[in-house]
């Protein structure tokens, strides 16, 4: 039981070429900036967008193959799609919405209704069966949408930004519910999100999509430890550098950041913002990387302050508000930056 898909789609400015695979029981997150083609990828898998090239196989059964001229219509695919805004039918009750997939498969009304009510109870909406979507909150609507998608027992469940239309307070509950329900579901799941935190909370594996191409894929731990694209690094709040690894460090067109590494050749280096120290004057002692910069912006992020510093090597540092006060740091203020060579993680491209 697997998903093997090579998806080639061209729509407008988007040229999507992505390989996606998933194992049973696995949740794969697809992350990437807006317009990267994440939603189009899901729609193509669901059969709502025709492939220009490639093939899709679920459990070894080919459901679309451009060269082989095979194309299965959406209603015949063992695939369910949970839409970003739920898309519950506004003129049906919650129960009728959940029962829709069963009715479409010819299940008699009575037993479809019973099973739908049982599913509503599973997602914590036992008493809302007769409500219409307009009477439900955003979080409740997404629960109904989840039940509606899962009741048909699809082999593959596609989730398109399931939390995007839900306000922050309901998001945590919905995430817990989703995790609980998905752990009971034996099929494969793909989750599209633009929020890496969401991906980390739910997914086993992640595929980073940028401008229609897979920029990076792997286990969550791998991708967070070794980002391979500026977008991933930015989303994770990490400093990412790209250059040539040498005996002394990573050379970036003349500027070198010192590091201790055996890697040689084209490489990335990542530095956590908390590993970057700021000083009022040139620091004494051991740090190998020391330079003078200028604070470009200061952003409060919970109990820390993220300081963007322009200079020979532009970086973001994360320090305590107390440190900012002690440094007397403001926008445009000069500051000394130091990074220990041991804090610079270098890995080959």
């Amino acid at each position: 039981m697997t998903l093997e898909a090579l998806v080639g789609v061209r729509i407008g400015a988007l040229d999507l070429q992505a390989t996606v695979s998933a194992q049973p029981g696995e949740l794969v997150a697809i992350v990437g900036p807006n317009g990267a083609g994440k939603t189009t990828l899901l729609r193509a898998l669901a059969g709502l967008v025709r492939l220009h090239s490639g093939r899709v196989a679920v459990d070894g059964q080919v459901i679309e193959d451009v060269e082989g001229r095979i194309s299965t219509s959406p209603e015949r695919r063992p695939i369910a799609l949970m839409f970003q805004d739920g898309l519950l039918f506004p003129y049906l009750t919650a129960t009728q919405n959940v029962a829709f997939g069963l009715r479409a498969r010819g299940v008699p009304k009575r037993s479809a209704t019973e099973r739908a009510d049982a599913w509503l109870a599973r997602v914590g909406l036992a008493d809302r069966g007769s409500s219409r979507p307009a009477q439900l909150s955003g979080g409740e609507r997404q629960r109904v949408a989840l039940a509606r998608a899962l009741i048909t027992e699809p082999r593959l469940l596609l989730l398109d930004e399931p939390f995007a239309s839900v306000d922050a307070s309901a998001r945590v509950d919905l995430r817990h519910l989703l995790r609980d329900q998905l752990s009971l579901y034996s099929g494969m799941r793909l989750l599209v999100t633009h929020d890496p935190l969401e991906a980390m909370a739910l997914a086993d594996r992640v595929i980073v999509l940028e401008q229609g191409r897979v920029a990076q894929s792997g286990l969550i731990t791998e991708v967070t430890a070794r980002p391979r694209s500026p977008w991933v690094a930015t989303m994770l709040g990490l400093n990412l550098f790209r250059g040539v690894a040498t005996a002394t460090g990573l050379d970036m067109a003349g500027t070198t950041i010192a590091a201790l590494s055996d890697v040689r050749g084209q490489a990335f280096a990542v530095v956590h913002p908390r590993a970057i120290a700021l000083h009022r004057s040139r620091p004494e002692g051991s740090p190998r990387n020391v330079w003078r910069g200028e604070a470009e912006s200061l952003d409060r992020d919970r109990d820390r302050v993220r300081v963007s510093i322009a200079g020979p090597i532009p970086v973001v540092a994360e320090v305590t508000p107390a440190a900012v006060a002690e440094l007397g740091l403001g926008v445009g203020g000069a500051v000394w930056v130091s990074v220990k060579a041991t804090e610079v993680q270098v890995y080959a491209e």
Partner: peptide, 10 residues
């Protein structure tokens, strides 16, 4: 909505 119905098997 019609697409949603299609993915639900209609």
């Amino acid at each position: 909505y019609e697409e949603a119905a299609a993915t639900l098997g209609a």
